[in-house]
Design a protein around this nucleic acid. Structure first.
Lengths: 351, 351
DNA sequence: CTGAAAGCGCTTACAG
DNA sequence: CTGAAAGCGCTTACAG
């Protein structure tokens, strides 16, 4: 391997001068600089980041622990992270954090690699208790005297933590979805969600209830279905039950797009026309919802931008050497083809 | 930061002994080992990988340059890479390689980081010429005398290269898709693909033609549609034209699932029933196809496994210090709801 | 504007 | 089984 020394020798200067040409070119005289530049190109020199990192105590890498890399929700998010990280001259080390053990061991690896900071996405461990524990350990790590690693949590669950957080507003997402359905005149609205106590599901459910109450609409337990797994098939099964109660809901607020797709599938198989007989809305804005037939209305998360902002927040914390206020990023309602005004009510309005 | 020295001091041994406890524990006497272990835990020591990498000339990182991180095709692939890499004790640095400039600069960054090896996925640069150029530069890099970086290309395009390659068989994928349709009795089969000269599209197209010829079926140019962009919307537009020729195809082989979803959308909007009036099959096996309504038949790539195998191949090359034969991984036909026997022909068979 | 020395935190190779 | 010395390839801090 070509080293700084080799370049220095060829250019007839001291190694430190080569270092300067690379890191602070303006401090070097034009003439020597071009001499060094030439030597660098001639030898195809590529600075060793490991050595540089060791000397500067800065690796120029940021770690990202994603709860599940294969989850399509995170594809855009990761792209946003990568793009923004490169703008700051940083590389991205990506890890999967499917369970506590995996997340923990990946965290340790990242610490060994001396990454400049770490971004964690919302975990989906088996139990919320383990997530609590993990976040607790992160806090300990973060507030340790001798070596602090800047950390940003994206949509942590549980949400209460002293660490810097970037988050979407689950409750607001729910309100937005419900308002859309209510404004279309729907009153018999079902809710399909997950039987988990993470805030994603709890808060969206709370928004569902509050929205009904605010309109003076009854809250009917037969209009609620909580399934066990965040999968289309499971959601479809749950939706069957929701769609077979006596007074069928005219609209369903699915807690996210995966579940919404399941509802759509169920409607198709039951021969229920969407949106004529049933309106459906989800949350997240993943591709799957966009390319369903009919395309699904969704409260869309700006995932790419969330990735970018996660990095920005992390970098700010890194340079400020202190924590910054948490960030809440707004979602946006995308009305597509899966919702329509309630029949009858809609006609009344026309006349 | 706690260093090896600190641990050594606390344990009352030489630094090298601590190093041994970490890297080759069996060479250290039980008694000293436990003394050192205790000191490590007490201080919360975490070995500095940068220093280790500098000394051993091995970073324990592998680089991955993905043509487009946000492409859902790669989500599972990356997960497979990450999982397998961790089994080998390696971290994954992920980069986006949307265009030549981006791929090039990311390559340079990875080289500076002294990654142990790099995996490149098929590029989708604007022009095939730039892809050729990039692969050419990789070859140069690979066969350079003084510092060779092991490299694996996943589905490169153009496909002819002297570098180690792991690939799916585009031509075979096409044959499998076509055989399925032909066996269902279809004779009027359309093909929707991209107007690009990458082998993904060329080879699948060739398989389309050859399959027809092998059955003595006519090749009709009005049954072919090549669109400009790999997008559902664009595919839908292309499909309209395909579905409005006088003698409408009874089946369509879409060159991949994205395009197949577009065909499905077009069929829906034209009121053409799938699969009763039109069978559709794609290639890739992405989620989007699986959760369409009706669900789309596809020649499925084992993407998770492809990721795993990419890492395995890379690791083998790294340790063998020489190139290994290229790997071709088989796809698998998943019949779902979007294909059915040609009416009439199907009934004949029954009687 | 340029350089000689020391050090970042590990491991390798050689002793004992 | 354990250790002292040298080195990996950079940069920091101090001189001049």
């Amino acid at each position: 391997m070509v080293t700084l020394k080799d370049v220095a020798k060829l250019a007839g200067v001291a190694p430190i001068t080569v270092s300067r040409v690379i890191n602070e070119p303006h401090t070097v005289k034009e003439q020597t600089r071009s001499k060094v530049q030439q030597a660098i190109e001639q030898l195809g020199y590529s600075p060793n980041q490991l050595a540089r990192g060791l000397a500067t105590n800065q690796s120029n890498m940021i770690g990202v622990v994603v709860s599940n890399i294969a989850n399509p929700y995170y594809a855009d998010y990761i792209l946003g992270i990568e793009t923004k990280a490169k703008q700051f001259g940083k590389s991205v080390v990506i890890c999967n954090g499917l369970d506590y053990v995996g997340a923990k061991s990946n965290l340790e690896l990242l610490l060994m690699q001396r990454v400049d900071g770490i971004i964690f996405t919302s975990f989906e461990f088996d139990s919320i208790r383990m997530q609590e524990r993990f976040i607790g350990e992160l806090e300990q790590l973060h507030f340790r005297k001798n070596h602090t690693v800047p950390v940003v949590l994206f949509n942590p669950s549980p949400a209460h933590t002293s660490l810097p957080v970037i988050q979407t507003d689950n409750y607001l997402d729910g309100l937005i979805a419900m308002r859309h359905l209510l404004e279309l005149g729907h009153a018999r609205i079902g809710h399909l969600s997950l039987n988990r106590d993470a805030s994603v599901w709890m808060d969206r459910f709370r928004a569902y209830k509050d929205s009904l109450l605010a309109r003076g609409l009854p809250f009917r337990s037969e209009y609620i279905r909580l399934i066990e797994k965040e999968r289309v098939k499971e959601a479809e099964q749950g939706a069957y039950q929701l769609l077979q109660v006596e007074e069928r809901p005219t609209a369903i607020f699915a807690a996210n797009d995966i579940l919404a797709v399941g509802v759509l599938q169920a409607a198709h198989r039951l021969g229920i026309r969407v949106p004529d007989e049933l309106s459906i809305i989800g949350v997240d804005g993943i591709e799957l919802a966009q390319y369903s037939y009919p395309s699904l209305a969704s409260v869309v998360h700006p995932r790419y931008s969330l990735g970018e902002q996660s990095v920005e927040l992390l970098v700010q914390i890194m340079s400020a050497k202190k924590d910054l206020p948490s960030l809440i990023v707004k979602s946006q309602l995308h009305v597509r083809e899966s919702t329509s005004a309630l029949r009858g009510r809609g006609e009344e309005e026309k006349s």
